[in-house]
């Protein structure tokens, strides 16, 4: 049923997704855009774990993909709440202007 595809195909897709979102983490200035890139990283890793379950036959991969998705949802909720709190205080969410802790 899957003769054309191996685990390597899925791993490469998830690595490419990871690399793209890593570029986003490096270059984004807006806090919301940065959080989106981090969510994308989590998604790529969850895909990786799912592929491991399918091709290597250990159910732990899917279980931990569920945990990764849960943690990323929690992180999104707290992160975006922080963004809103920062916006209320500073009226922008650009990361290079968050210098409150600078002496």
């Amino acid at each position: 049923m899957m003769e054309g595809l191996s685990m390597i195909h899925y791993l490469i897709v998830s690595i490419v997704l990871f690399g793209i979102s890593l570029y986003g983490v490096f270059t984004r200035r807006n806090a919301i855009a940065l959080l989106l890139a981090i969510e994308l990283i989590m998604l790529a890793v969850a895909l990786n774990f799912t592929a491991a379950t399918y091709f290597l036959g250990h159910a732990g991969g899917q279980i931990f993909a569920i945990f990764i998705i849960t943690v990323s949802a929690a992180e999104a909720a707290v992160g975006l709440a922080l963004v809103i709190a920062i916006y209320r205080r500073q009226k922008n969410v650009d990361l290079d202007q968050l210098t409150l802790l600078k002496g």
């Binding site: 899925y10 969850a46 895909l47 799912t50 379950t53 399918y54 899917q62 993909a65």
Partner: peptide, 11 residues
């Protein structure tokens, strides 16, 4: 959709 091709419907 990729997860569906891996038969991980729940995920």
């Amino acid at each position: 959709g990729l997860m569906l091709t891996l038969s991980a419907e729940f995920l």
